[in-house]
Amino acid sequence: MKVSYIKYVVFVFLFFISSTSFSQSFSGKVTYVSKSKMELGKWGAKMSEAQKKQIASRLKNRLEKTYVLKFNKQESFFKEDEKIDAISGATDSWGAYFSRGDQYKSISDNKLIQSQEFYGKRFLVKDDLYKINWTLGSETKQIGNYTCFKAKAFVPYQELKWFEFSWSDLNASNKEGQEEKMIVVEAWYTPTIPIAQGPAEYWGLPGLILEVSAQNTTLLCTEIVIDKQNNLEVSPPEKGKQITKKEYAKTVKNKMLEMRNNRMGRGRRG
């Protein structure tokens, strides 16, 4: 039996014997840094390295973000720590239209509540949590002071990107017989903190998720603060028009189609 596998078995055993007493006695706060690789598609081949660096600099607020996760045994609240653009002194308002809003997850009743704003309207998205079918591995690595284990899963694209929008996705969705796109997700969790929580849509592992990667984006924990007195309050957002994930995605799609049709209409009249 390999040493890494023995370590895995020991950690899982410790998780089961300690999860009840340990998880009921504390809450905590985790800071994550999100980094995304810039995708330029076919246009990238025509650009110089200087042009690519210039675009990356302009899109820094979208490519690099900071998030905070507050959690207890059954609940979590995930929110972006918005940064002000050092040059313009403004936030990225256009990018915010298709960014993840403040997100509340309740593991006890399998519920997601997420606040989204789109073109001046506030929505309160309420839906079931998507249950991720994780495959646990024995591979380990150190993240800060915590030994973490690797897990992988295949998750439907729409479950991770329902609040986003792209014209390429729209064109693909209009094709009949289009197969559901799956995304490979790789996560690193620590049984030392036996909480089935994690950043964004990720949860359900036998330990807190400290790093997760999907497509071109990685979320990495940079700080953990444990509150053993369990004084950290976790509560869901409350304001906005109640709507489901599918209904919200449809609302965004219809608005973008309306804008495109209006532009095309003005072009024909001109």
Rank of each mutant, 00 (worst) to 15 (best):
K70S: 08
K79M: 12
E64S: 13
Q74Y: 12
K65H: 03
N72F: 02
D85G: 01
L63M: 11
Q54L: 08
K73N: 12
Q54K: 12
K60H: 12
K70W: 04
F78A: 02
D85W: 02
I87F: 12
A56K: 15
E82V: 15
R62D: 13
I84C: 02
A56W: 08
L59P: 05
S57N: 12
D81W: 00
N61V: 02
F77V: 08
D81T: 09
R58E: 11
K60E: 14
N72Q: 05
Y67N: 06
N72R: 07
D85N: 14
K79Q: 14
S76A: 10
F77Y: 13
L69C: 06
K73T: 08
K65G: 02
S57M: 09
A86F: 06
L69P: 11
K70F: 05
A56E: 15
E82S: 09
N72P: 06
K73S: 06
K73L: 09
A86C: 01
L63P: 10
Q74W: 12
L63F: 06
Q54F: 10
T66E: 13
F71V: 01
I55A: 07
N61P: 10
D85V: 00
I55V: 15
T66W: 00
V68K: 09
I84H: 00
E82L: 13
E82M: 09
N72E: 02
F71Q: 04
Q54M: 11
A86K: 14
R58T: 06
I87Y: 11
N61M: 14
E80T: 04
F78T: 09
Q74E: 14
E75Y: 01
D85A: 00
K83F: 03
K83M: 10
E64N: 14
K53T: 03
L63A: 09
K79Y: 10
I87A: 12
I84L: 15
Q54W: 11
D81F: 03
K79F: 09
R58I: 07
Y67W: 15
E80K: 07
R58V: 05
F71E: 01
E64V: 14
Q54T: 08
K60G: 00
V68L: 05
K65N: 10
Q74T: 14
I55S: 01
A86W: 07
I84Q: 11
N72M: 07
R62S: 14
K73Y: 05
L63H: 06
S76L: 03
S76M: 05
F77W: 08
A86S: 14
T66G: 01
V68A: 06
V68S: 08
D85F: 04
F77T: 01
Q54Y: 11
L59N: 08
R58Y: 06
I55R: 09
F78G: 05
N72D: 15
L59C: 04
N72T: 04
